[in-house]
Nucleic acid binder design. Structure first.
Length: 357
DNA sequence: GATGCGTGGGG
DNA sequence: TCCCCAAGCAT
């Protein structure tokens, strides 16, 4: 019953998305990675860029990490890009360039978990593996009235078992797409349009007025506060840049020299820190501009960032290889966190320092 | 099993 | 302004 309604609905209402018009596992893999925790609208341009610039696994495997991160810039969750490249190289070097054809092999790949492995194996190879993503959790919890929290082991098991049962005797690719598309378009998180829903009579949540209460999540993420001060050191032509560590936020992306403070108060006293001394005082630098505080929200952190544009007569010498001195014009070749892109955009790409005002 | 990991849209 | 959440995964 549910499946009949669902499949009829899908045939009429589904979107025409580029990764649905292919059986190429590489393109399906790429789309699945891009769309993890990311809306279609946000990922579409990146999908087009990547398929155009890297038309095959082998083409992608030849790229450098810095380059792929630059292409991924602005999309977030940058470990996805690094794992994508890692796996492309792995396939090129160890799997004769061929994407594995079975779920059991696909799930071994870095950056591919239970969801993506099910999606790729079913979409590309018609393997009967049920996808369970956020859309599926939401739809199943409402239609079948399941209140087990979806972010627990018990919940994952229960929903997966139900999804595994529903996909039986269906065309795997179409059934999985239908399940997700229904959640994305019809059974939306907020204000779902139950009036136009094809299955109100069989929907438990609708019958019992529980649409707003399902699905259930048990955990709530707490956001920690962080205080950043960025030093934009320039002699008018050159800029100081750092590569971020391989762990933590914005791993392996680039940024200006950063002073992190433990509190708002400490952030006010940034000009008393050691790094300020070595980069500003020792270089006889002048602060040409101090920005207002930027508030940058991540899913789990709230960053307050100040930017200091400092003019020096002579660029300071550097101690570690994580630091580099670049020409101002080269800045757009480096992958930067969105916070810095936002700042640069506001500052009209550092015109003040360029013009030596 | 809990935590860390981005960015943007919408109510 | 605040909160939730969006085709999850690695550690």
């Amino acid at each position: 019953m549910f499946k009949n309604y669902l499949h009829s609905w899908y045939l009429i209402n589904h979107r025409d998305l580029p990764w649905r018009n292919t059986k190429n596992p590489y393109k399906i893999w790429l789309s699945e990675v891009i769309l993890q925790q990311t809306r279609v609208d946000q990922g579409m341009d990146y999908y087009n860029k990547f398929t155009s610039k890297y038309p095959s696994i082998l083409a992608l495997a030849k790229a450098s990490e810095d380059e792929v991160l630059k292409d991924w810039e602005g999309l977030g969750y940058y470990s996805r890009a690094r794992n994508l490249l890692f796996t492309a190289k792995h396939i090129a070097q160890n799997l004769k360039g061929e994407f594995p054809r079975h779920y059991s092999e696909i799930i071994k790949l870095k950056g591919i978990g239970p969801y993506a492995a099910a999606a790729i194996s079913s979409f590309a190879f018609e393997e009967e593996k049920a996808v369970v993503d956020g859309n599926v959790y939401r739809t199943l919890s409402r239609v079948f009235g399941i209140s087990t929290p979806i972010d627990t082991t018990a919940g994952k098991k229960e929903f997966q078992a139900l999804a595994d049962d529903l996909i039986k005797n269906q065309k795997p690719s179409v059934h999985n797409q239908a399940m997700m598309e229904f959640g994305a378009l019809q059974c939306t998180p907020k204000n779902p349009d139950c009036q136009s829903c094809p299955l109100p009579t069989i929907c438990f949540a609708y019958e019992h007025d529980l649409i707003g209460d399902l699905p259930v999540k048990s955990k709530k993420v707490k956001q920690s506060k962080r205080h950043f001060s960025y030093l934009i050191i320039s002699d008018g032509k050159k800029l100081l840049l750092n590569k971020r560590p391989e762990k933590g936020i914005w791993a392996n992306l680039f940024e200006f020299p950063l002073i992190e403070s433990s509190s708002e108060l400490e952030q006010e006293k940034v000009q008393q820190t050691e790094l300020w001394n070595s980069l500003v005082i020792a270089s006889k630098g002048t602060v040409k501009f101090k920005s207002d505080s930027y508030r940058h929200i991540l899913s789990h952190q709230i960053i307050t960032a100040d930017f200091y544009e400092v003019k020096v007569d002579k660029m300071p010498t550097l101690s570690t290889t994580k630091n580099l001195i670049i020409n101002k014009s080269e800045l757009n070749q480096f992958a930067l966190p969105k916070l810095l892109l936002n700042y640069l955009s506001d500052r009209d790409d550092l015109l003040s320092l360029l013009n030596d005002n």
